Simulated assay, not measured.
Amino acid sequence: MADHQQRSGRRGQGELEVLVLSALRESDGPATAGWVQERLGGDLAYTTVITILTRLLAKGAVTRERSGRSFAWTPASDEAGLAAHRMRRVLDGESDREAVLASFVTGLGPDDERLLRELLDQSRGEGDGED
């Protein structure tokens, strides 16, 4: 029971992922797990940082390259790109894509709907090639 109470004060996995990604975005280039741990104030165990980075790698949110005996980590894209990636993953997990997209679009406010129409029109224009 005491362990449960102790855990309730901890940050959730999603919050930790956001913190780690934010730290990586602050770096001037690929960063090691040790650098991320230090940047976050050292209150996370090194193994926790590695676990979070590994989860982010599996989600496609970060990339890594060999750096000596360890790895250097880089965000795969900016925040908008990561949000879009999450949206695609949710959509890919559903059996009725059309229903999900229809529900999403009908739930948009007028400004978002207008923006989506503009973006779709731009996308079509870019895909046309020469007219």
Results as ranks from 00 to 15, higher is better:
L16P: 02
D3I: 13
R97E: 15
R124G: 03
E17M: 12
R64M: 06
R117C: 08
W35N: 00
G42D: 09
L82W: 07
R66I: 08
R114C: 10
L56I: 01
S95Q: 14
G12R: 07
D128K: 09
R69W: 09
R7Y: 13
L108I: 03
H85D: 06
A102F: 07
E15L: 13
P75S: 00
L116R: 00
V100D: 14
L57M: 09
E65C: 08
S103H: 05
T51N: 13
G60K: 09
G41M: 00
G109C: 04
K59R: 14
L108N: 08
S123W: 05
R66T: 10
L56E: 02
G125R: 08
T63S: 11
D43A: 07
R55C: 04
G14M: 09
D128Y: 03
I50P: 01
T54E: 14
E94T: 12
S22C: 04
Q122I: 05
M87P: 02
V18G: 10
G34S: 09
V49M: 12
A61D: 11
H4P: 10
D111F: 02
E113L: 06
S22A: 06
V18C: 11
R88T: 15
E130F: 02
A84R: 13
A31Y: 12
E113H: 03
D128Q: 08
A45C: 02
A61L: 13
E94C: 09
T32C: 01
Q122K: 05
A2K: 11
V100H: 13
P75I: 00
L116H: 00
L57I: 01
D121V: 13
Q122T: 07
A83D: 11
G14P: 03
A80H: 11
Q122E: 10
V62D: 08
R39P: 00
Q6Y: 11
A33K: 06
D96A: 08
G29T: 05
P110W: 06
G107Y: 00
D131S: 10
S103T: 07
R114L: 11
E118A: 06
G107R: 01
A102K: 14
D121S: 11
L44D: 06
L19R: 12
E118K: 03
L82S: 06
L101V: 15
A61N: 05
D112R: 09
R10M: 09
R88L: 14
R25N: 12
L101T: 09
E26R: 15
L56M: 01
G34P: 07
D28L: 14
G129C: 00
V18W: 03
R66E: 14
S67V: 04
L24A: 05
R25S: 13
L40E: 00
S77N: 11
Q37W: 14
S77P: 12
E38N: 10
